[in-house]
Design a binder for these strands. Structure first.
Lengths: 221, 221
DNA sequence: AGTTAAATACCAACCGGTTGGTATGTATGT
DNA sequence: ACATACATACCAACCGGTTGGTATTTAACT
C-alpha cells in the first residue's frame, strides 16, 4: 500500500525516471499494455516486449530492474494513463450525485468497444495472474484498482446522504462497482462475447436505482 | 461446445480413460488444481505438476497430449468435482424459489474459508489467463462456468414468475450471480483480503431482495 | 485354468529452443 | 571526463515435448 518506497524523505518527490517523450521506457510500457492484455504476464516474454517496442534487451534492463519491476511499473502506468481519462469524462456533470454514479456506469458501458482484450482491465488481469508469484505486482495492481474506486466515493457519499440510504457505505459501494466490472470482464472472456459486460452493468445500474429508491429508467438486461 | 469429439458414433460412450483410483491422471489433476490456483497456468510448468503429483513426465504426456490438453481437462475436472458438491448443498431446501437463490448466495459466503487461492474459482482464473493463447482452454472454462450458472436458472425462473419480476430473465440473473462472484474473487486478490468477497455477496443479496421486492433481512455490507 | 500376446500405464534420460538476466561495448550530451 | 541511454553478444537454467524402454493389466485362445 505504501507508494513511497524511500523511507525518510521530505519535500516534493524528485520524480526522476519518468517518461521522456518517446523514450524506450514508454515504448516498452505501451507495448506491455497491449501484449499483457492479449497474452498475460507470464506468457509475454521480455523478448516479446522488446520486439513489440522496437528496442533491445539492453534498453529493457536499463529501464527496469527485472521483469517483475516492469509489472509493477505497468500497474502504475496503467493507473496514470486512465485516471485523466476518467477525470475528464462527462459523467461528472449531473448535479445529482446519484445521476453521476449512474452516468459512470453508463460511461463504462460506452467503453466496451472493440475486442475483449481492448477494454478489459489490465490491472485486474495482472493482479489475478501474479497474485501468488509476484506480490509486488499484485499490490501495485491493488493500488490502481482501489485508487480508481476511491474516485467514486465522494459521489456515493453524497448520494447516500441525500437519499438517506442505510446499511452500506460509500467505500463499499465504490468497491462493489469495480467488483461487478471485473467480474463482467471475466464472464465476457469466458463466454467470448462482450455483451456479458453490458448485461452485468445493467444489473449494477438497476441495483443502484433500487437501492437509492429511484424508478428503474429503461434497463434492458 | 461439442463435448463429443468422435464424429460418427451411436450408443453409449465407452468412457475409457477416466480416473481409476489414485491413477497418475487424477494425481496430476489434483496437483494442477492447487498449483494453478496459486501460480496460474503459464507459471506452472509441467515439471512442477509432475513433482507435485509425484509422477514422471512420461506419465504426464501419456495421460495428456499437451500442456494445453491438461488445461482443458482441468476445466472439465473442476466442473465435475464441484457440481456434486453444489447439488448436495442445503440451499436447495427452501420451498420458496427466492429463498433458494438467497440461500445459494449465503452458501457461497460460507465457502469463503482459508487462503484466497483456496476458494477462488479455478475456471475463472484459467479462463482469464488463457483467453488469448489457448482458446480451447478458455472454451472449456466457459462451459464449466456457464454450466454452473445454468443450475441456478430454474430457481430464478420460478422466482421471476412467482414474484412477477419484469425487465430481466433467469439466464441473465444466473450469469450475473457468477459475474459478481468472479469479480469478488479478483477484488479479494487485488486487495489481499477475503472480506471483499463477503462484501460483494452482501450487495448481490440485497440486489436480489430489492429486485424481488423482499425486505432486506440484515445485510451488513 | 493356463499360456500368450497385445495394449496400457508408467519411467528415466534426453532434446532443441526459449527464458530472464548479464557483461561488455558504444554513441551522445554535458 | 564522465554519466546516461542504449546496443550486441552471450549464458546457464528451464521450458514443453520426445525417446526408448519396462512393469502391469487386460483379452484371446487353447
Amino acid at each position: 500500500m505504501n507508494r513511497n518506497p524511500s523511507p525518510s524523505r521530505s519535500g516534493p518527490e524528485p520524480e526522476r525516471k519518468r517518461a521522456r517523450r518517446g523514450s524506450a521506457r514508454t515504448l516498452i510500457l505501451d507495448a506491455a499494455v497491449q501484449l499483457i492484455r492479449e497474452k498475460g504476464f507470464a506468457a509475454t516474454s521480455v523478448d516479446d516486449l522488446c520486439k513489440a517496442a522496437g528496442v533491445t534487451k539492453g534498453a529493457f534492463f536499463h529501464n527496469f530492474e527485472s521483469k517483475e519491476a516492469l509489472g509493477v511499473a505497468l500497474a502504475e502506468y496503467w493507473g496514470e494513463m486512465t485516471a485523466p481519462m476518467f477525470a475528464a469524462a462527462p459523467y461528472h456533470q449531473p448535479a445529482d450525485p446519484l445521476d453521476r454514479v449512474l452516468a459512470y456506469v453508463d460511461f463504462r458501458k460506452e467503453l466496451v468497444q472493440g475486442g475483449i482484450p481492448d477494454f478489459s482491465c489490465v490491472a485486474g488481469t495482472l493482479s489475478q495472474e501474479t497474485y501468488g508469484e509476484y506480490p509486488a505486482i499484485r499490490e501495485a495492481c491493488g493500488n490502481t484498482i482501489f485508487g480508481h474506486a476511491a474516485t467514486l466515493e465522494p459521489d456515493f457519499a453524497e448520494a447516500i446522504e441525500e437519499y438517506g440510504v442505510t446499511g452500506t457505505t460509500a467505500p463499499s459501494l465504490a468497491r462493489h462497482t469495480q467488483a461487478v466490472l471485473q467480474g463482467a470482464f471475466i464472464m465476457a472472456k469466458a463466454g467470448g462475447e462482450r455483451e456479458a459486460v453490458l448485461d452485468a452493468l445493467s444489473h449494477l445500474r438497476r441495483y443502484l436505482e433500487l437501492l437509492f429508491g429511484r424508478e428503474p429508467s429503461h434497463g434492458h438486461a
